[in-house]
Structures are given as C-alpha cells and as structure tokens.
Design a protein around this nucleic acid. Structure first.
Lengths: 153, 153
DNA sequence: TATTGTTATACTCTATAACTATA
DNA sequence: TATAGTTATAGAGTATAACAATA
C-alpha cells in the first residue's frame, strides 16, 4: 500500500437529525458487518437463510408468497426451496384446498439450524457487551426498542 | 397461505446480557435490511461498493490488499476492479517501486457516487428520526458511540 | 525460486421465457 | 382464460488452476 493512513473520519454533528443519521448509518453498517461474520457453520446463502426464517415466522407459506416476501422471482424461489428441502430443513406438502399450490413448512432440523444461527450471533454480541459499563448497557437497553421503531415507520 | 399468524416474538429479558444481545441482534438486522433497500441508483454489487469504499478510505491500495480486505480471491478482485474501472469509478496506475504491482485509487466520479450513496441512506434515516421524540433521539445519540465500540472490541 | 496480478474455466445463484396442471 | 408452480436456458459473480511478468 502506498498511503496506509485512513482519512480522518468526518465527525458528524450529533445534535442535528442529519448528523445523528450519519453517525448511526456508519455504526450500524460496521456492527452488522462484524455480526454477519459470526454466522454459524451451515453454508446457507443469505436468501436461503432469510427464506427459512420467513417460513418459520409465518408457520406455513406457499412458494409464491415466499418469492414475494424475499423479493425474488418465483423460479428462483423454487430453487431455493429445493435446496432447503434437499438438506431436510424445509418440507413441502400439498395445499389443502387448491391443488395448484404447495405448502412449505420448517422441519425440526430447520428450526434447530435457525436456533443455532441466532445463538452464535448472540453469543458474540453478549461477549462484546461484557466490555461495556453498566451505564452503557443501560443506554443500549433503552435504544433497542427505538432502533426497532425506526425500521417500522 | 394457511396460517398467516406470525408467531409471537419471544420477548427477550433485556436485563441480562444474553437478552440484550438477542434484542439488539433482531433490531440491528431489521434496520440494516431496511437501510440496504435505500441504496442510490448506481447498480453496484455489494462487493463493488465495499471495494470502492475501501479504496477511498485507504487512499490507495493494490489489488492484493483489496482482495484480502474484502475477503475475496485475487482473481475475483481483478474482475471487480475491472468493472469499476470500466465505469470510471476507479483508476489503475503503476506501482512506483514494484513493477509487478498495481495501485488503485478512486476517481472523482467514484467519490461522487459514494457520497450520493451515503446521502441517500442518511436522508432516509433522518426522515425516520423525525418521527421520534426528543428523548428518544437523545437515547440514540448516546447509543451511537457505544454501538461503534461494540464492533471494535 | 517466490510473489503479484491476470487469464481460462467451472460452479452457484438468480433472472426471463416457456410449459404443465389446476381453478 | 387465469393462476401456481416448475423446467429450460442465459447472465452475473466468484472460485480454483494455470500462466506471465517481476522481485
């Protein structure tokens, strides 16, 4: 490398909405990047993992609904489901009323994988939290529901 | 869909580190998902965008360093750089001391694109912040540096 | 001989288009 | 005739292996 000096990070003015937005964007991106690296050893693609989680969350879905939910085209979802079924994480069953449709649900193995995935990431986060003061943790406790709110608006 | 009812989100016990970690993981993932959708209209892949940002941040890098930094293989980085150079966002120049190596730097167009990308995401975040109370925003102001700290530990 | 970067080639993921079965 | 899902095929991105240039 020629010039290894990182440019000085522009210090955002936290008192303005724009400044706070800027600081949050940087912090959130960085933390999520670190968190993503903590994935459990399951070798699922992001779409596969998100699909599995969506099926679990909604208890039972059709391929069409899943394609819509994950913003992929139906043929792509067919492949994703096939891969997950092949690995025994999802099960396909006939739709009770419309024989054109198919119902997809999470198997016990799929639920276990999701649990393990979450456990791994949360264990890393919990380890990081140990390095904080009680006051800092209190701030994060207060912030968590607000961050949740931000994505809902 | 058969049963559209989402399972009730398990309410984490925020008082424990594990509970806080769980709540944070969910909030962070959701918010980042929303944020990623706010990308500016530049049609760069995540790797391309991250590479461009890395070069900007480190002022000048070689392909090998970039491959290492972005956790891709050197041949893949060659392609990424080629794409970015083709679009005029990166420039390649000979290394001053080692003629085997190459130096990569961001062009004015590349810097403009990065700026626009950040501006778009921050504008969305700032809009979301407007829906919060002054107290909630104060909490986030306090939380931002702590989140930053979490990824550094 | 070791290292840096590139080219050749194969695999994976996702898209569009065409097809089958059912409503 | 319209809809749900699948199969066929193509394009984009990344990997490994082989190669060229330089240290």
């Amino acid at each position: 490398m020629l010039t290894n000096q990182p440019k000085t990070e522009s210090i955002a003015n936290l008192r303005t909405d724009a400044g706070l937005a800027s600081a949050l964007r940087v912090s959130l991106a960085r933390l999520n990047r670190r968190l993503r690296k903590q994935a459990a050893q399951h070798s699922l693609t992001p779409t596969q993992l998100a699909t599995l989680a969506a099926v679990e969350r909604h208890a039972a879905m059709t391929p069409g609904e899943l394609a819509e939910h994950e913003k992929v085209q139906p043929p792509s979802m067919t492949r994703v489901i096939a891969k997950l079924e092949e690995r025994g994480l999802l099960a396909r069953s006939p739709h009770p009323t419309d024989r054109r449709q198919v119902t997809v649900s999470v198997t016990a193995a799929g639920a276990t994988l999701l649990k393990e995935e979450r456990r791994t990431k949360e264990a890393w986060l919990a380890r990081q939290l140990k390095g904080l003061t009680a006051e800092e943790k209190a701030t994060l406790r207060a912030a968590a529901p607000i961050l949740e709110k931000l994505s809902k608006t």
